[in-house]
């Protein structure tokens, strides 16, 4: 019934506008297209809109600087991505400023005056050539640099002594498995899922025995995925049910988890969690966050690297996360030694 009430309000508003039109209609001089006065007002308003857009751009950039991700990429590969990003963004901002200026300034400057003649100017090969060739050159540069970066980031075939970790997505949590001593992940398929073997690892595969699963603990932030600083981590990604996406924004890394196939993404962490907590950007951001949380009576939080799910996967898609801890390599090895391999778990 309430919906009906809202619809009635909506209709009443339309009728109110309708009555307003009637009033305007009575006082209106008959002129189909815009009058000089209207051209003038709207011309000035166009300048105003330009001001609004510029203001919004500057204000957003200024105001958003504290809410963005820390500028320092937590992975080596991320540096290249960030360079390309900054270059492209600079180009975009320059072009945006110029183009919007020309558009709105011309809209203002050439606002109609009754006895002015427009300039018949239908074509100019010279101009058109200029603005076909210049974007072509600029874009060629972007394309070459972009593809170079992409290949750099995606190709991990020449990695020295990488560590393999499997990430396994399911509604609505991330599981993980380290490749163990032989640095080879045992094969797996959902058809092996049984009892405690929740990731469907093939226990008869000789590579499986030394694999180390991240022990399943329900609830958030109980599980921690540790990775070593300075060593390439190659993630092998699987999904149990629907599409998920491993999104690690601080490392500039993202890859979908696709049921029926294994996907891959790799990076070399270069900043430990402890170091990132001391980063200026992070400190500023978390001070602001904790201020807000205090107002709401929530407890203070500390920075942590995260995996978020970034492909719609069901009702609780908005809360599918895993904490990542980047350790110095020695600490990482110490931590890994405390974890149980499948062989140890199964023999218990």
């Amino acid at each position: 019934m309430k919906a009906l009430f809202f619809i009635i309000i909506f209709v009443v508003l339309i009728v109110a506008c309708w009555q307003f039109v009637k009033l305007l209609g009575l006082t209106k001089v008959d002129n189909q297209t815009a009058t000089e006065k209207e051209n003038n007002i709207n011309g000035w308003l166009m300048l105003g809109l330009m001001g609004f857009i510029y203001g919004l751009m500057i204000y957003s950039m200024y105001g958003a600087k504290d809410v963005l991700l820390p500028r320092a990429s937590a992975s080596e590969e991320g540096y290249h991505i960030d360079n390309l990003f900054v270059m492209t963004m600079t180009l975009i901002l320059v072009v945006q400023f110029i183009m919007q200026f020309l558009l709105f300034f011309f809209s203002f400057k050439y606002r109609g005056i009754d006895d002015r003649k427009a300039f018949f100017f239908a074509d100019s090969h010279k101009l058109e050539t200029i603005w076909t060739v210049i974007p072509t050159i600029v874009l060629s540069g972007l394309i070459i640099y972009g593809i170079w970066t992409w290949n750099n980031v995606m190709d991990s075939s020449d990695a020295k002594d990488p560590i393999f970790i499997e990430l396994y997505g399911k509604q609505f949590q991330w599981d993980a498995r380290y490749a163990g001593e032989d640095n080879q992940l045992g094969s797996a398929n959902v058809r092996f899922i049984e009892g405690t073997n929740t990731m469907g690892v093939d226990m008869t595969d000789k590579n499986s025995a030394d694999d180390i699963p991240l022990v399943v603990n329900e609830g958030k932030f109980v599980k921690e995925l540790h990775v070593p600083k300075g060593r390439k981590v190659i993630f092998k990604i699987r999904s149990q049910d629907v599409l998920h996406s491993v999104f690690m924004p601080h490392f500039r890394a993202q890859m979908n988890a696709v049921p029926g196939m294994v996907t891959e993404i790799a990076f070399t962490p270069v900043i430990t969690t402890a170091e990132m907590r001391l980063n200026e950007d992070t400190k500023a951001k978390f001070e602001a966050i904790n201020e807000l949380r205090k107002e709401k009576g929530e407890e203070a939080v500390e920075f942590d690297y995260l995996i978020l799910c970034n492909k719609i996967c069901g009702s609780s898609h908005y809360n599918m996360q895993l904490k990542i801890v980047v350790d110095e390599e020695a600490d990482f090895n110490k931590w890994l030694a405390t974890q149980n391999t499948f062989a140890q778990i199964n023999n218990k």
């Binding site: 051209n39 011309g43 011309f106 050439y110 109609g112 974007p135 874009l139």
Partner: peptide, 25 residues
């Protein structure tokens, strides 16, 4: 990224269309 070229041409051409016009707003 190639699509940006014809798109840019269109945007420039629109702006040039209003340049020195007598705009009825």
């Amino acid at each position: 990224l190639l699509i940006a070229i014809p798109s840019a041409v269109k945007a420039f051409n629109w702006i040039t269309t209003i340049w020195k016009g007598n705009l009825r707003m």
